[in-house]
């Protein structure tokens, strides 16, 4: 938690503060009152829980520079597992390990691909791509699968009935179904049998004013810095600047989903 690489992006924070101001002015009077009441306390600073609604002034996303992604390194995967309590899943007694391996939830995984023509090998982390037009949201019968105003695609597990249609619809196989009882849970990452879940861009960190995601931090700490997290709508953010310079693309861009996660070097 005291990672030096977790330096706070002041530019983005400033932007968010002004965005909050805009939201305050434009929102309904009732909400305005609520916001003013909150504004009496110190404004949103680092580590402070969010007091105002998320807005679409921000769109969170990532750039993954696959040229920096090291073969065999799984720092991002283990960091995600720790951060979101995925390593607390236990194989049920009597289960077949090979089958359980396919039933266990995973939010991010490393993939190694080779181009059929050129033979070029690429390593990359793959997770929910946080589409602007997410197929999982379209197909969800109850509206449990939703896109937050700031672009994070996530599951409201209070509404999820466990039909798994979103898993059928996701082109990235980003989602996992919880196949068994979960004994130990983290406060910041609730998890229970019978619901579907996936990467939420460390939404608890977003709402507590932290700068980055667990995977991006871990990648930086491992010395690779292949994952850059930030606000796609802020032209001054390091993410936007990097995207402006580096040629990047979406996975399955033929589907025109406008993903929030972009890849360079694939």
């Amino acid at each position: 938690m005291n990672n030096p690489s977790e330096a706070i992006d002041q530019g983005r924070r400033g932007f968010m503060r002004s965005a909050a101001g805009v939201a305050t002015v434009t929102l309904a009077p009732g909400v305005l009152l609520h916001t003013l009441a909150n504004a009496a306390s110190p404004g949103p600073t680092a580590g402070e829980p969010r007091a105002v609604q998320v807005t679409d002034q921000v769109r969170y996303g990532m750039l993954i520079d696959t040229t920096k992604c090291a073969e065999g390194c799984t720092a991002c995967v283990s960091a995600c597992d720790r951060e979101n309590g995925l390593d607390l899943q236990t194989m049920p007694e009597g289960a077949d390990p090979a089958l359980w391996d396919r039933q266990e939830a995973r939010w991010i995984r490393k993939v190694k691909v080779q181009d059929n023509l050129t033979g070029k090998v690429t390593n990359l982390p793959l997770m929910c791509q946080h589409c602007e037009h997410p197929p999982c949201v379209d197909v969800c019968p109850t509206g449990a699968s939703f896109k937050r105003a700031d672009g994070i695609v996530m599951v409201d597990r209070h509404l999820c009935i466990g039909c798994r249609y979103c898993m059928m619809a996701c082109p990235y196989k980003a989602r996992s179904f919880i196949h068994t009882n979960v004994e130990v849970k983290l406060t910041l990452a609730p998890r229970g049998k019978g619901c579907v879940e996936s990467c939420n861009l460390c939404v608890h960190r977003r709402d507590n004013g932290q700068a980055s995601t667990a995977c991006a931090d871990a990648c930086a700490a491992a010395g690779h810095g292949a994952i850059l997290f930030g606000d796609l709508k802020d032209p001054a953010s390091p993410l936007s600047q990097a995207l402006a310079k580096l040629p990047s693309r979406q996975l399955r861009e033929n589907l025109a989903l406008n993903t929030g996660v972009r890849y360079a070097g694939v």
């Binding site: 829980p49 309590g85 849970k185």
Partner: peptide
């Protein structure tokens, strides 16, 4: 508590 932690664990969420 099907899904939520029953003891404080895993960092703060809210005041």
């Amino acid at each position: 508590f099907d899904c939520h932690a029953t003891v404080p664990a895993g960092g703060p969420l809210g005041p």
